[in-house]
């Protein structure tokens, strides 16, 4: 202990205290303050950048899910459209078929009617012509037959017979 006390130097103690306090204040102003500030600033910057990156990633995920949703919707819409179109096509085809059938039937009817008309007209005309022909033939025959009086009377009698029969 006596050795320690003898070795203890008041001057050294004094200088150490003075120089050290001076050093603390100097370093506070010129070193530790700026250094700690710079480190803090940098750490804040890193923290912010990380948060921002996280946010961006989140946003990207959101966008991606939005995209997926939109894509899904578009696909569904397309499917619906295709389905509609298919249905429409089918109904159109069937409707067209029906209409065509109806039209065809109608046309057939008309044709049949026209044919019948024509037929009856033709028959009438044939009848008329045949009538005319037969009249003219009969006229000629009658003319030829009525040239003789006897025959005329015979025919009249015959005709009268026929009439009475009716």
């Amino acid at each position: 202990m006596e050795k320690l006390l003898n070795e203890f130097s008041v001057g050294l103690f004094f200088w150490q205290v003075v120089l050290f306090i001076g050093l603390i204040f100097l370093l506070r102003k010129f070193a530790w303050g700026p250094i700690l500030d710079a480190i803090n600033e940098r750490e804040e910057g890193i923290k912010n950048a990380l948060a921002e990156a996280d946010k961006a990633r989140q946003e990207m995920l959101n966008i991606k899910s939005d995209n997926d949703k939109v894509l899904k919707e578009a696909r569904a819409e397309r499917d619906a459209l295709l389905k509609d179109a298919r249905e429409m096509k089918e109904t159109m085809i069937s409707e067209a078929k029906e209409e065509a059938q109806v039209q065809a039937n109608k046309m057939i009817e008309q044709a049949k009617a026209a044919i019948a008309n024509e037929k009856s007209a033709a028959i009438t005309e044939m009848k008329n012509q045949m009538g005319d022909l037969s009249v003219s033939i009969a006229e000629k025959v009658v003319k030829g037959e009525l040239s003789d009086k006897k025959k005329q009377l015979q025919l009249i009698e015959q005709l009268l017979n026929e009439v009475t029969l009716n």
Partner: peptide
């Protein structure tokens, strides 16, 4: 003390 001052003031300035 001088060395510390030069070293750490230099570090502070480099930021």
């Amino acid at each position: 003390a001088l060395l510390m001052f030069l070293l750490f003031a230099g570090l502070a300035k480099s930021y």
